[in-house]
Design a protein around this nucleic acid. Structure first.
Length: 207
DNA sequence: AAATCACGCAACCGCAGTGAT
DNA sequence: TATCACTGCGGTTGCGTGATT
């Protein structure tokens, strides 16, 4: 990573001043239109960089700190089900971003589960070179998603959405508990994990 | 104390999908 | 319908820092 950019675009780590400018912009104009945000604020960053900074760091919904065992477990289960669909996995783990989940997987969980080093694409020409074991009856969608062959992508989404709704029901019937200013869903871990197991059973039935 | 190594994380890159014109 | 701008995603890179030699 280079420091201050040569000319127009700045790259590398964000400064506190840049963070404040971006936060102020979002406070007033809301999220989205990141290219416009970059121009409007005068930040020498492109829209993608602004978006990434907000999504992964500045957003108040981002939970920081170490991953709990429950989160690890959830990631492992969801990864088994979904493959490297980090955004989908992160979407089921409140407060965690796809980047966090991806990093955590590559650094900790892949080793823990005996993957050889962190996952690397062996052939740069192939974005998704890590194909599933052919002996497993897995099909790949147009996006190379891992989907049990007897389930459609829509079914998969429905089940996950259903789980999400159920999870909301479960959590809404219990007293919300804040940990360090963040709502900690894993205080409800038993119910949520049972729910996930149900979903996994459904998806992998006859698989 | 200095050099080296390994790890963790933030950020970049390229590509694909989607919506607006 | 075609084109373009924007957004989102996954893979990868490289910096910062603590541990080890």
């Amino acid at each position: 990573m280079e420091g201050a950019g040569n000319g127009e675009q700045r790259k590398g780590l964000w400064t506190v001043e840049e963070d404040i400018i971006l936060m102020d912009y979002v406070k007033v104009h809301g999220k989205g239109k990141w290219n416009r945000a970059a121009k409007f604020t005068g930040l020498k960053r492109d829209g993608k960089s602004c978006r990434l900074r907000w999504m992964n760091y500045l957003s108040p919904s981002v939970k920081r700190g170490v991953f709990s065992e429950e989160e690890d477990d959830l990631i492992i289960r969801l990864h088994k089900l979904l493959g490297n669909r980090w955004s989908l996995i992160a979407g089921r783990i409140p407060g965690r971003t796809d980047n966090q989940v991806k990093n955590h997987w590559n650094i900790h969980l892949s080793k823990q589960l005996g993957f050889k080093g962190k996952y690397k694409v062996s052939d740069s020409s192939s974005k998704f070179s890590k194909k599933p074991d052919a002996s497993l009856n897995i099909k790949l969608s147009s996006n190379d998603r891992l989907i049990p062959s007897n389930k459609t992508e829509a079914e998969l989404q429905n089940v996950l959405e259903g789980s999400h709704e159920k999870a909301k029901e479960i959590t809404s019937t219990q007293e919300p508990i804040l940990t360090s200013g963040f709502y900690d869903p894993y205080l409800y871990a038993p119910s949520l994990m049972e729910l996930l197991d149900e979903s996994l059973d459904f998806l992998w039935h006859d698989f």
